[in-house]
Simulated assay, not measured.
Amino acid sequence: MNIQPFLEDIAYELPEDRIASHPLPTREESRLLLVPPGERPFEDRIFSEILNYLVPGDCLVFNNSRVFKARLFLTRHDGKIFEILLVERLNETSWRAMVRNARRVKPHHRFRLEKWEASLQPDPEDPAYRIVHFSPSLDFEDLERLGEIPLPPYIVKKREKEGHYLLTSEDEKRYQSVLASLYGSVAAPTASFHFSEALLEKLREKGIVITALTLHVGPGTFRTISPADTEFQIHKEWITIPEETIDVLKETRKKGKRIIAVGTTSTRALETMAQHFPEDWQPYSGYTDLFIYGDFPFRVIDGLITNFHMPYSTLLLLVQSFGGKERVKAAYKHALEKGYRFLSYGDAMFLWRKDGVTS
């Protein structure tokens, strides 16, 4: 689809010093930019104050996908080491992967990783990927010992410039939501980073409903839209919305309370489901290639908690579609002027629908 008319709206200057390369010591002490509906002024808060903007019966929808240690280093038969990023487990022995220096890898080459032997074959569905076959099988639990957390490229790049360690033990805990439970993501649903166990408990005590779905975040989330992309194809991701979550959503709507997505991934999953079941929401499982931009008709969410996204990103298009193009552009300008921290380890914003509907 031709996305060129929208590019100017998601172009902005992001100074490198605004990219957060490390998390704050405490999750809920990040900053929160409140973006009320209409023309009401923005409010600069601390994230823990989100308690003051939610009422009993409001529902927060989290993505419970867990980042797995997807980065591996395989040794080829000639001793050369190749870095790979596992993207998706296809079956017990096979994974879809991205391979650094892939042109130097041939189908007949053999690789080792401790007791595992591996071969890398072309992916018949997408030439950007390879299919990696392991013998014996390699599972998520094995990767907890063998692999590395795949931090976003912009964090690694900034840490290199700062002279810091590229990966720390702290990342294993903090590049993960406290609600993460189901392995499958190579990038974290970062809006949930701001919630600690203590804050979640306070929310529950206030009567805020907490529910979850699953969207396994793929590397496509980091892909920005280039001016050369005359026909842009958004990435696919796997989602699962169980029956118990659907029941919670229906009950929330029945009571006239608000459904608030924690992150763009939760938004994408919920609105995908509603595309399939617009009148009577139902459990859903499958791939989504839903591209949210422009005048997208949101059917589920009333509010959105999200981090600040890269220029030219599809995620920023989604946020503008929900909150209003000019309103979100003004919020980003405010955040830059006020020194907010951007991207995965950065601060958050809480915004409502551009039409002012909040329930």
Rank of each mutant, 00 (worst) to 15 (best):
T214S: 06
G323I: 01
E125N: 15
Y183H: 09
S65E: 07
R223I: 13
S177V: 01
K338I: 10
E13V: 13
R110S: 13
K325S: 14
E197P: 07
F193T: 08
E117T: 15
P122K: 12
F134L: 09
N91E: 13
M1S: 14
V186M: 04
D355Q: 13
S21I: 01
K354F: 00
L336S: 07
S181L: 07
I155F: 03
Y340L: 07
T288Q: 04
R40H: 09
Q275Y: 11
L200S: 05
S285I: 03
N307D: 08
S313N: 01
I241A: 07
A20R: 07
P278K: 13
V319R: 05
I81H: 05
I305D: 04
F82R: 12
N2T: 14
G303C: 06
A188K: 06
K325F: 02
I208C: 11
D139A: 08
D289Y: 09
P25R: 14
S313Y: 04
K202W: 01
S196N: 06
V217R: 07
E201Y: 03
S135I: 10
E13R: 14
V156W: 05
A261V: 03
P152W: 03
P41W: 08
L336N: 03
F277Q: 06
R31P: 02
R71H: 05
V35R: 00
S285C: 00
L7G: 08
K338F: 04
S135G: 08
P37W: 01
G356S: 01
K338R: 14
E148L: 14
I292D: 05
I259F: 05
R103G: 08
S48K: 15
L24C: 06
L138F: 00
L182H: 12
V35W: 01
F222D: 09
P136L: 10
L166G: 10
L138E: 02
Y340C: 09
Y287R: 13
M98A: 11
A102S: 15
W116H: 08
D280T: 13
K338L: 04
L343R: 08
